[in-house]
């Protein structure tokens, strides 16, 4: 029986939801360019500048808008976090492991985008920063949950051995 604590997975679901809402805001802006004719260009917290740059799509210049990638990614993480409260496997694969692998991918992508903001654009977008913080926290929780799951599996495997010893 899987006895690991539920709170990390609950927190992961809330984080993924936050990331989803955040990225849906950017996705709508991308789909429906508005006259949010930016007030200024170049100021810190300049999302318009970051969104208008060639790095707002991946791969740069001719790729998929990163807002869409974020939307799909967080939606997937949300579904998987909720699912992992109900079951621990999908087919042959352990859900905590899937979560951790996807979260690591998300973390790496966030690191890439943050590096672009810091060293290439010298511009910061508050929505991208929120997304990066969510990615870091989600990864930490997914790592903790995976570790807990591994520990409980190891304990289960030990139990029969102990029983025979006693």
């Amino acid at each position: 029986m899987d006895e690991r604590p539920e709170w990390p997975r609950m927190a992961m679901a809330f984080l993924a939801l936050g990331g989803l809402i955040n990225s849906s805001y950017l996705t709508i802006h991308r789909l429906r360019p508005t006259q949010s004719a930016p007030l200024v260009c170049g100021v810190v917290g300049n999302c318009e500048a970051v969104q208008a740059s060639k790095y707002s799509v991946f791969p740069p210049t001719n790729g998929i808008p990163v807002a869409y990638i974020g939307f799909v990614g967080f939606l997937l993480l949300l579904v998987l976090s909720v699912l992992s409260l109900q079951r621990s496997q999908i087919g042959r694969f352990s859900l905590p492991m899937i979560n951790l692998v996807l979260a690591s991918g998300g973390l790496a992508f966030s690191a890439y985008l943050t590096a672009i903001e810091a060293w290439v654009l010298h511009e910061w977008c508050q929505w991208c920063i929120i997304s990066a913080v969510v990615a870091v926290l989600f990864w930490a929780l997914a790592g903790f949950d995976w570790w807990q799951a591994r520990r409980s599996t190891a304990a289960e495997q030990l139990e029969p051995a102990n029983a025979t010893a006693v």
């Binding site: 709508i28 802006h29 360019p33 508005t34 006259q35 004719a37």
Partner: peptide, 8 residues
């Protein structure tokens, strides 16, 4: 929020 902004 998004729908309130007028389309350019």
């Amino acid at each position: 929020q998004a729908l309130q902004a007028p389309v350019a």
